[in-house]
Design a protein around this nucleic acid. Structure first.
Lengths: 191, 191
DNA sequence: GTCTATATCCAGATAGAC
DNA sequence: GTCTATCTGGATATAGAC
């Protein structure tokens, strides 16, 4: 399925770029219209409200990320699967940094009208990690610890990925991936 | 130094609580005044502008966090120091969840008037981790990898800490700390 | 399906009494 | 030092022409 073109696509793209730097509340419908090259009336023809526009944007973006993670894990098992997930998430953050920034800013907000939607998507993405972790450490499935460790790994990749892309972009991707993998390989705290 | 009381203190407290759920841009000066129990005019007597109010809030909060981390590391070395830092950060997040949410939402914003201030404070906190990591893995100091690993550890604690406090608060603190430490102990990817 | 023009409300900030 | 009252710009959303 090719990315749809046309007005709706242009609006979503403009919205994402603006929201990544100005935040959702700080992005105005006037700015979105201007950057998308359409009139404000067209925004409200294509989306019922500002809230609905952002809900669709997050749904599309985080949904695609979850798909990417599932594909990255497909066919792999054990530590190879987890390593592939970490690399895939880092790549996803690099190729859609705007979405990653938005996720970091929105993931713990509980007052949004789209809260349920985002919660479900977040859960979907984290579950891919949790499943892979449960396979490596079977004991963690029983007490739900694999979910916590999934957050831990996800948070490590998200924050170091954004640290790299936002504040230290000259660094090479492989260096960043190596540092993340290194930090989970037991050199820091392991025996 | 006891926390100052009085109007300024009440305003800062009200601001933090509101911003943790509604975000900075979504928090209005009228709401701050109402929750603090003062008139809007008093806000502008005590702070030059909304931006300055939030800058002082972040300065106070993140500055205190950096102090806490430095104290936690004092006198310790090697893996014991890093483990103490992880526990101290998790405790800090638990005892000031509002600030942690605010940090997660603001840390990668680059359009704020207080950008330089927040960048410096973030750097201060991360450096404490980076120093401890460089002590454990001396080779990482040369190429700056310790900075990346510091982000990795910091991100792991921040996200799993907030995951716990926001979405799964019945869980016990020690369980969360154990899961984080476990994820860095080599069980997931180690040899 | 997209535009322009406008209605309506609410935000940050200030003036000046007490 | 804190209050009330108010100014002014800008925000979401809608109406209706094309």
């Amino acid at each position: 399925m090719p990315r749809a073109t046309g007005t709706k696509r242009a609006i979503l793209d403009a919205t994402l770029e603006l929201a990544a730097t100005k935040g959702i509340t700080g992005t105005t419908m006037d700015e979105v219209a201007e950057r998308a090259g359409v009139a404000k009336g067209s925004l409200y023809y294509n989306f019922a409200s500002k809230d609905r526009l952002f809900e669709e944007l997050l749904q599309e973006g985080v949904g695609a990320l979850a798909d990417t993670l599932r594909e990255a894990r497909a066919g792999l098992h054990g530590r190879a699967a987890l390593e592939a997930l970490i690399r895939a998430l880092l790549d996803g953050i690099a190729s859609n940094t705007a979405l990653a920034k938005l996720m970091a800013a929105e993931i713990f907000r509980t007052d949004r009208t789209w809260q349920k939607t985002l919660f479900a998507l977040r859960h979907e993405a984290l579950t891919v990690f949790a499943e892979a972790i449960a396979e490596v450490e079977p004991g963690s499935r029983r007490d739900g610890t694999c979910g916590l460790m999934a957050s831990s790994v996800f948070g490590a990749v998200l924050l170091s990925g954004l640290e790299w892309l936002v504040f230290d972009p000259e660094r090479h991707r492989d260096e960043v991936a190596a540092a993340i993998l290194d930090s989970f390989s037991g050199g820091l705290l392991g025996d």
